[in-house]
Simulated assay, not measured.
Amino acid sequence: MTEPAKPRVLAQVAPRYLAGGGDPRWVTVPLQNAFRWQAAHQPLSPGVRLTSRDQQAELLLSPDPDQPWWTLRHHGAGEEEAWTVTFGARTPAEIVATATDAFATAGGSRAVVPQDVLGQAGWKGSPNTGFVSPDGHLAVTRNAWGSWHITAATVHSPWNAAARRILVWEGLLTSRTPSRVVAAVFTGLVSPDPVLRDEKAMVPFLRYSARIARKRIPARQAEEALWERVDRLSAQRPNRALPPTPGLPGVPLPRRTR
């Protein structure tokens, strides 16, 4: 007699910037279901393209090993200049989502200086020289043109003092990226909250460098958290008139099933 399969469980991993990519739906599902971004039809393609209802912004998820996997781009409108945010393949989806959330919700009312987020979290450095996380694995610098560059790196064998460092992922926020988006990304970087991952799917050098709690979480909780997130962000959707969904009048977007 075949034994029933055990429920899938996930590990709690911290710091989140060393947790690996995770579930891309954490980014894409809220954009479509909470903010009504439209998915471009790309048959037989591994890429994803979502476009804002006003056609001024887009999110690209393109699994190209030689290019950034995530690209959030605003084309510019009126007095607002164009800007772009990109992230590499192993950027945790939770960090990518900080940028998309901040942009799609139009941010908060309180202005935040991005550098203050890192400094107040105890990261080493200064606005002039850049910041490094307390564990030394993540660095944030700003170039002469005002763009922010983020690099996460670790070593192949933490117990070997001579082990070479490995680039885990990198991000770039161009100079015109709104400060609310930059500050939101930095807030995600300094967050002490763990994220959920399938430990067996993590590459070895990340398992060696990150902290993995012994307590496991049922995978269904991650799915529930995703849809709770959609509901929460739906309530924050900017209340402004938008053009109707092209070609899909009155057709609701797919919802979760129980």
Rank of each mutant, 00 (worst) to 15 (best):
G125W: 01
T2D: 15
R232C: 01
G47W: 02
L189N: 10
P238L: 07
L189Y: 01
E170F: 08
G20F: 13
R258S: 08
V251Q: 06
G146C: 14
G107T: 10
V251T: 03
Q32Y: 00
R90S: 11
A225K: 09
A121I: 10
V195E: 00
P204G: 13
T86H: 02
W70K: 12
R53Q: 14
A40T: 07
A111D: 14
G188W: 08
N239R: 10
G119T: 05
D193Q: 04
P158L: 04
S157Q: 11
N143K: 15
A139L: 14
R110H: 05
A144Y: 12
S209E: 12
A153N: 02
V190P: 02
E170L: 04
R255I: 01
W69Y: 15
L248R: 09
A57T: 15
T141C: 01
E224S: 04
N239G: 11
T154H: 03
F186W: 02
L31D: 13
Q120D: 03
A104I: 12
P178S: 01
A89C: 14
G21A: 15
P249M: 03
P114N: 14
A162S: 08
D135S: 06
R220S: 08
P243N: 04
A34V: 08
Q55C: 09
S175T: 09
A104T: 09
V251D: 02
D231E: 03
G76D: 06
T98R: 15
R142L: 14
P65E: 13
A104W: 10
V13S: 09
A241I: 10
Y17L: 03
P24R: 15
V29M: 07
V48S: 04
S191C: 08
D66V: 10
P218T: 05
A213D: 08
S234H: 06
P46Q: 02
R176G: 02
L44F: 03
T98I: 09
L167T: 13
A144E: 14
T257A: 04
G22N: 06
S133T: 07
A213K: 07
S147I: 03
T174E: 11
V168G: 10
T257Q: 12
D66K: 15
N128W: 00
P114L: 14
L248Y: 00
V112S: 04
V96R: 10
R207Y: 01
L206T: 08
S179W: 05
Q12D: 06
L50H: 13
V96Y: 09
T71Y: 01
H149C: 01
V168W: 00
V85R: 03
L172A: 07
D64E: 07
S126Y: 02
H74M: 09
Q67A: 13
H41Y: 03
A99H: 13
T141A: 12
P114G: 07
Y208N: 07
R232H: 00
V168M: 15
H149W: 02
R8G: 00
K124M: 03
A77Y: 14
P192W: 05
L138K: 05
L226A: 08
L59R: 13
G136H: 04
D66A: 05
D231N: 10
R73I: 02
G130P: 00
R49I: 10
V195I: 14
L173Y: 07
G247A: 10
E223R: 06
I212V: 14
